[in-house]
Design a protein around this nucleic acid. Structure first.
Lengths: 335, 335
DNA sequence: GTAGGATATGTTGACGTCAACACAGGAGGT
DNA sequence: ACCTCCTGTGTTGACGTCAACATATCCTAC
């Protein structure tokens, strides 16, 4: 009579635990959910029974009963950018530490933002984080029946919480750093239109120039990729001595373009990036850049969202500071 | 009598659809699950009713009844490496296109591999993809009650399907390319011990050298990061003229170290990387590297795993080819 | 004409959980 | 002595779905 002839073992349910502990299923449920209305001795007995049987609550059953899945969604356009990947990791870790699963939905795969929302709804997520998706806000708007945390976007977010890095402030710091080094003005290699982060960094650059009463050069534009940074930097004015790129990867492309044009960095041109991705310290030369705290951003986003879900906390709007990291790609302007 | 005084609307269930279509709930279930035993006219009537009410099946209820969650897990040590991020995106998209949600579990956050498995079990995933996690295989082994797809790892995978890139073959191609350019030998900047990909790339390098009867220099070692590549390359032998780095990011660090030492690339030293990350074309000089097809890898991994789950297909072991991408960082050895 | 089979649909109950309610017993107040 | 309130626990039923079984028609074959 081989054991494996028997039908597949049923999973351990509350009823099994209840039987072993000599209590009702409801009491087991109360213990599982940390209800205060349980006698300490009973609680202990139930805990022992749970451990003995290896009981784990059944998420699906719980979700069916309560309507809550303990799952969060993350909506993002692409993970090709290093910044988005870093955010994802931070969010995944933060969600896991609170007992939430994380479902990743990329807009590119979903088709458009509305499809992405449909996918999230399909997964019955309790809430979602919308990452750097300005288009989602314009095209069709945000659903208001799903708790959302809108990260790095602006506009009509309705009742939802928002959170973003102080892109403009970071950009301002970068520009002031370059101006203090004696550069007559600072050129800007901007990110794509439609991106909140790109727009804010551009604004910070513009305002810092205006504040210093310095002329504002024509904006160059890329799409966050190194290749686009390279292409844009080829058109950089011949007399430019300072360049602020909207992210590190575009700065990388710009560094190559400048080298090919025999314009030494930092000898002839100073370059600043944004993000402080891990590789930036090993660019040639090591890149001066604006550091974003991705981990804090992810942590904060999940924290606020979960609190909103669990306690119906009111909408919040947070801003995270940046830090200028000075490396070898910037130096005083030649006189 | 304001509408919003009414209790929150119950979600649309099969019973609602059944009532509207004038059939039983079971028939609605059959239509929802594409059962063939439904009259075409009835099917159409049910479809119309579903559309009219905006019916969506309730995943939790379905999971409770069937024991299947339509969720896959992805276990990965870190998303800091660009390669892992690319894989994640590919896997996420492939899973979504098959109607599966993807839950990301990072081992670093979980503590160790066994905790990560516990987390996956907690989420009741139908199966999981283990990405580049050699340690998971050694420390405690793999569970055999959960369908797994082991990507880029070796060893005792038990009954599970495996899939990996032909790292050794790609490395061999890189080495032969350098030898054909006339270099006396090729130094290797290897990845961390414990990584299957690193070990395989190192093996490919070693075997290609042996095949050409060329002396094998001491291996340098890093941990995939550009910083580690920089540090390791500082110790590169003074007479080295060719370097094969185990990934592009370490190659980036090496390029900086060589530049600081005034050793021109490719004039004095030729360098090859591995992965062909998007930025590699904008390194200085643009990097010759071995391209991995991340998208195909993700697609294939999900495909095999899902087929295993849904049809109990037997274990499979696939290998994906690589392609050498020649750019400006390699040239014939000086005579 | 009737048995037998195929096809289309309906009925019942259970998956595991927890909210709502019920109830027993003890503490405290009058 | 009685009523009230609080604490700890049990009972019941429903969340939405689908497998198993039951039933109703219709077709074909002899």
């Amino acid at each position: 009579m081989a054991l494996d002839d028997l039908p597949a073992v049923r999973r351990v349910s509350m009823a099994d635990v209840a039987r072993l502990a000599g209590v009702s299923g409801q009491t087991v449920s109360r213990v599982a959910n940390d209800s205060p209305r349980v006698d300490p001795a009973t609680r202990e007995r139930v805990r022992v029974a749970m451990a003995e049987l290896g009981y784990r609550p059944h998420r699906a059953a719980r979700a069916l009963r309560t309507g809550r899945t303990h799952t969060l969604g993350l909506m993002v356009s692409t993970l090709a950018s290093v910044g988005n990947s870093r955010m994802l990791q931070a969010v995944a870790d933060a969600a896991a530490s609170r007992g939430y699963a994380l479902v990743v939905v990329t807009v590119s795969a979903a088709g458009d933002a509305q499809d992405a929302f449909a996918q999230l709804r399909d997964q019955e997520v309790d809430g979602a984080i919308i990452l750097n998706e300005a288009t989602a806000l314009t095209a069709g708007g945000l659903p208001d029946d799903l708790p959302l945390m809108v990260v790095d976007a602006s506009g009509a977010v309705g009742p939802h919480a928002t959170l973003h890095t102080d892109h403009a402030g970071g950009a301002g710091a970068a520009v002031r750093h370059l101006l203090e080094l004696g550069h007559a003005t600072v050129h800007h290699l901007a990110g794509p239109l439609g991106s909140f982060a790109a727009a804010e960094r551009e604004r910070g650059w513009r305002e810092a120039l205006a504040e210093a009463s310095v002329p504002e050069p024509t904006v160059l534009r890329g799409d966050w990729t190194a290749a686009s940074g390279h292409a844009a930097a080829m058109t950089l004015a011949a007399d430019a001595t300072a360049l602020f790129a909207a992210n590190d990867q575009m700065a990388l492309g710009a560094l190559r373009a400048l080298a090919d044009a025999h314009r030494d960095v930092p000898g002839a041109v100073s370059v600043v990036g944004f993000d402080d991705i891990a590789d930036a310290a090993d660019f040639r030369p090591p890149l001066t850049t604006v550091r974003q705290d991705f981990d804090a951003l992810g942590e904060r986003a999940v924290d606020t969202l979960v609190r909103g879900i669990e306690t119906g906390a009111p909408r919040a709007a947070d801003v995270l500071e940046t830090a200028l990291v000075i490396r070898a790609s910037t130096r005083p302007a030649a006189r």
